[in-house]
Amino acid sequence: MDAHIRKVYVPMTETGFYILFCLQEEMHGYNIGQKVKEMTGSAVTISPGTMYGTLSKMEKDGLISFVREEEKRKIYMITELGRSVLELERKRIARLYQNSMGEVCHG
């Protein structure tokens, strides 16, 4: 993983994390928005400009890839690079959570 990817995506915005998380399955933008809303009980919502901008940026940086188009909607899926970024974030958030509970994080 190069320096640019690390600089831009580690740590990641909440929006970025949820989009990448959802794209472990094939999905289009509006679907992702709905799923995130459902997962978080409407605490995290993603508007269309943010959704479109983040998807374009992640596609350009190779974190996700375009799969196909369905009724003018682009369907995306996470790439290997995306998975490793997601894994880094997952570890970082787990450590953050453990530390916040007063625990020491090993490994």
């Binding site: 915005t13 909440e14 929006t15 970025g16 919502t45 993603i46 508007s47 269309p48 400009g49 943010t50 901008g53 983040t54």
Partner: peptide, 11 residues
């Protein structure tokens, strides 16, 4: 959130 096209300041 519906009233805006951006939902975070990063974007």
């Amino acid at each position: 959130w519906n009233e805006d096209i951006y939902s975070d300041n990063d974007s």
